[in-house]
Structure formats: C-alpha cells, structure tokens
C-alpha cells in the first residue's frame, strides 16, 4: 500500500511540473529544457532555509517559490529575445550549468553528496510523515495547481498570451504588446516548479544533483509533448504515462540501472517520434511551427 502512495506522490509532483511546464511550452510557445533547474532551485532553497536558517516549512516554501520566480525573470527576458531553437539550446545549456553548479558548490549544496535530513512537510506541530499523508497533500496541491492554470488559460489573458505566442507582429497590430503578462506567467510557471521541488525535498528528506539532471528535463518535456501542449488534460496524461514506464519496467523485473536506461530510451523515443509524427501530442494540442 505504501508503494501505491509513493507512486501517487510522484504522479502528483510530476503533474505540477508538467502543468507548469505546459504554461511555458503550450501557452508561451517556449520549448524550454531548463524546467528541472527551477525544480532543483525550489528543492535546494527550501532545504537550505529549513536546515541552515531553521525556518518553518511554510516560510521556507514561500521564500523558495518567490526566489525561484525572481531568478527566472532573466531567463524569461532571454527567452523572449531568442528564436525557437535558440531557446531550446540556451535552456539546455542553462540546465547543464545549473546542475554542474549544484555539484561543484559543495559548501552550499553538499556537492555530489547532496543535502540530508530535510524536514518533512509541517505546519506548526502537525507533521506529514506517513506516505499517505504526504501523497494526499501533494495530490491536493497538484489539483489546485491544475485548477489555477485552467482558470488562467481559459480567459482574456490567455488569448493575450496566445496572440503573443502565435504572431507577435500581428499581436502588436491589434495593440497586444504588454510584456508584463509574459513575465508574470513565466514567473508563475517557475514558481510552481519550485513548489514541486519543495514537496519533493521534504518527502525524500535527501536531494542530490543527479535527481535534477538532463534526463529529468527530457522526461518533463516528453510529458508535455506526449499528452498535448495547451490542452487541459494533456500534461496530466503525459505525466501518468511517463510515471508508469519505470514502474512497469520494475514490475517485469528490471533492476535500478536498467530502469534508468529504459527511461532514457523511452523518453528519447517519445521526443523523436512526436517531433516527427505527432507534434500536437495524443490529445492534439499546440503544434510548434
């Protein structure tokens, strides 16, 4: 039973990540590969605030989300200026730099050894320690995140974003030019990824840079492209499929390194096949031109 709660927790965390990445890919039209850098930032910042500064969970969580949102703004600025493939490559380089910095800044991040003893989710004296309570909490957060994104993406503001995404020249021809909404949406997406990082860090009680590497980034992008970008249930479906793959491999007797390798193959294949044959994803979402 604990195993099921564990998988449910992972599904919830990856749903938050996929839904927030979909804001960037599907609604802003930015094919970024650095979302797991924001995931990492949220995890490490929250863990550091709790371990070093002994801040309570709610305060650490809030600071981690806000800090990640602010740190993401220069990334948003750069992404706005660049063409499609430059965004892909630049964001991939940013992810590699981030993971390397997490490995190398031993004094701050523990280096390859990571950070241990991260406190679980707690609100005052109430601690969520069991698999079940943490999974239920994560599912609740995931549901709220999904709802918030749906509200945002079916609104006048969403039309504004989609116009900027599809044709910025035509958009300015209709007086759609404000950049505030673009930055706000980017910061919201990165903040949500940070929230997922906070939940993960408190659940696992131990984080190291390998959790947030390029394979994670590829898996997240695969979730969004697989399910269908800019579709309400697309990222959720993508997260469900991607989470299931390693569990299926484990169920048929694969060891941990085998699971990792199969993940690489499947994620890579998904990206490749969908790029060629079905860029709109299973549910037929936003298609990259």
């Amino acid at each position: 039973m604990n195993y099921l709660w564990h998988v449910s927790f992972l599904f919830a965390v990856f749903t938050i990540l996929a839904v927030s990445l979909d804001l960037l890919i599907g609604h802003l039209g930015l094919l970024v590969l650095c979302h797991s850098a924001f995931f990492a930032l949220g995890a490490y910042l929250s863990a550091s605030f709790m371990l070093s500064a002994h801040l309570p969970f709610p305060v650490s969580c809030l600071f981690a989300i806000l800090a990640t949102g602010v740190i993401s703004l220069p990334v948003a600025f750069a992404a706005r200026r660049l063409r499609g493939d430059a965004v892909v490559l630049g964001s991939f380089a940013l992810l590699l730099v981030t993971v390397d910095l997490l490995k190398n800044l031993r004094n701050l991040t523990g280096g390859l050894d990571g950070l241990r003893g991260i406190p679980p989710v707690h609100f005052g004296p109430v601690q969520l320690v069991s698999y079940q309570s943490q999974a239920v909490f994560a599912i609740l957060i995931a549901a709220i995140s999904w709802l918030l994104v749906q509200r945002l993406t079916f609104s006048a503001q969403a039309r504004f974003l989609h116009a900027l995404r599809d044709d910025p020249y035509a958009a300015v021809g209709l007086r759609v030019y404000s950049t505030t909404i673009y930055f706000r949406t980017f910061a919201l997406a990165s903040g949500m990824a940070a929230l997922a990082g906070v939940l993960y860090a408190s659940y696992a009680s131990y984080i190291n840079p390998s959790v947030f590497g390029s394979d994670q980034a590829i898996a997240l992008t695969a979730m969004v492209l697989l399910g269908g970008a800019a579709r309400p249930w697309g990222p959720v479906l993508g997260a469900l499929i991607v989470i299931s793959i390693p569990e299926i491999v484990r169920a048929i007797g694969g060891g941990p390194s085998y699971v990792g390798a199969v993940n690489y193959v499947v994620m890579g294949l998904v990206l490749f096949l969908f790029a060629i044959y079905r860029p709109k994803g299973i549910l037929g979402g936003y298609e990259f031109k």
Binding site: R151, L152, S155, A156, Q157, A158, F160, S178, T180, I181, R184, T185, L188
Partner: peptide, 9 residues
C-alpha cells in the same frame, strides 16, 4: 486588457 490582471483571470 491594457494591463491583464492575473488575479482577475
């Protein structure tokens, strides 16, 4: 909306 409000959305 000249200044689209995230809160309103």
């Amino acid at each position: 909306p000249t200044s689209p409000s995230t809160f309103s959305s």
